[in-house]
Amino acid sequence: MMVFEGVTFAYEPSRPVLRDASLALGPGLSLLVGPNGCGKSTLLKLAAGVERPDRGRILIDGIDLWEREVEARHALAYLPEFPDITPYATLRDVLRLVCRLRGEPKATGVKALEIFGLVNEADHSVRELSSGQRKRALFAAAFIGWPGHIFLDEPLDALDRQISDDVLKWIGERTASGATLVVVSHAIEPLAGLVTRAVTVRDGSCTVHEGLPAEPAARLRFLDALARGKDEFDAA
């Protein structure tokens, strides 16, 4: 369970992205939708501990993300929209770091590289990789340690069709295994069948839309309307 309690956050004090927002997302796939700039990626960064709330707190399985930093982060994995991997290390170095921090054997990192087809690129720097390869590298990091909370920002961007299919399959498996997945995506169609609930951010507050239409076409229309910034009643 990932919980936001009265979270306020602003890059500029006069323009808060979130204002006293509260939210609780349990197991299943929560799809964060909405127009550009509404605060979806920021919400995900807050949940992943990349940004710290100006006020309020964020709990991962009841553990405060900024009080017990290491413990809370053991349970989460984050895939940013722009895969920022340091150019001063190789992919193998980065995955070994993740293994060490999550208390996993090095072999898990090697296995993750194999699963995401990056064995040949393991000793390359990020500068030599395409955008899709960088994204796959961070998927491989998310695989290590089997974290129960997974935050994905535009996970299907820049991926080829085969890897996209593999990622969707992986998302489905993790959802079925009881993990909490929060995904920001403008590509709704591939994910619509897997979505448990939708989340929107508007004017600094978050709304969780449970009980999505079961019929695929109606569900897609509903999610599409939310993504265009319409409210729940208009969407329905």
Partner: peptide
């Protein structure tokens, strides 16, 4: 390194 901040460190 923003992503690093999501790791258990």
């Amino acid at each position: 390194w923003p992503w690093l901040r999501s790791l258990p460190l």
